[in-house]
Amino acid sequence: MIPTPLIRTAALTKHYPGVVALDAVDLIVEPGIVGLVGPNGAGKSTLIKILLGLLTPTSGTATVLGFDAGRESLRVRELVGYAPEHECLPADLSAVDFVVHMARMSGLPAAAARERGDAALRYVGLAEERYRRIQGYSTGMKQRVKLAQALAHDPKLLLLDEPANGLDPEGREEMLALIERIGHEFSISIVMSSHLLSEIERVCDSLIVIEQGRLVRAGQIADFTGATHLLVVEVDGAADPIARRLATVGVEAKAAGRLLEVSVDPAEATLVHDAIVAAVAEEGVPLVRLEQGRHTLADLFSPAEGGAPAA
């Protein structure tokens, strides 16, 4: 039984001397994989630490899984797993000893902790290596141990601070696949922070954007990145003449350098598609790509899109 919403904050504010880390953040987070995105210093880690009861907000309230993050932080922490951004693993212990110990620290009896510790390391793909000391692990393996210790006590919610940071592209992809699996197959809700929109876009169901301590917007990823009625055409030459040709057949197109953006009524999609191909052929320039335009999350940070009120 997971209470909904997972997380609720009301006018959550955190001041540090001279800095406003969080500025009156109102938030409702529903179960799923939630991306917490914003540039470095936006207040992502501060928010996560307040949710864990590690920091006391200057004002406002935060509720996690139905418990007050400050007054009932012990209840919250029993049910939440946390993996911080920075290094946090003891080099001289084996992964299994450490994860089992952390499961006990979360309140699991010794036998259950051992079982869950083994399982958690298996889930993150470290079954074989778990008896080795952590000091010999690669960055990717350490990130997995961080995830395993957060997973060991079967939390209802994982708070992951930049889980793919510092990994090479392959490791990053594996970590994101793992997060997606935990969120969607294991059905454990996840709030993961990242300064990279592409990561969030890759795995998250919904999104919270914060910048300079303010909530910029929040909502389902699909709402942001849904297909637009826009075809993007790239040619190996000037796009302008093609736009003029299209105008003559009643298709409105916007040219910019070698790119052409064409607004499409879905009912006429095939016709427009054919018209574009014909126009490109007539103009005699090679067609590089023709695809359905999608908003990327990067658009959120463009000035035209920013500043909309959050959910």
């Binding site: 864990l52 590690l54 012990l74 209840r75 922490r77 029993e78 939440v80 946390y82 911080p84 920075h86 290094e87 946090c88 693993l89 003891p90 952390m102 620290m105 979360s106 309140g107 210790q149």
Partner: peptide, 10 residues
């Protein structure tokens, strides 16, 4: 840096 993991426990 393990302290924070302890303090994120109950």
């Amino acid at each position: 840096g393990t302290l924070v993991l302890y303090f994120s426990r109950p």
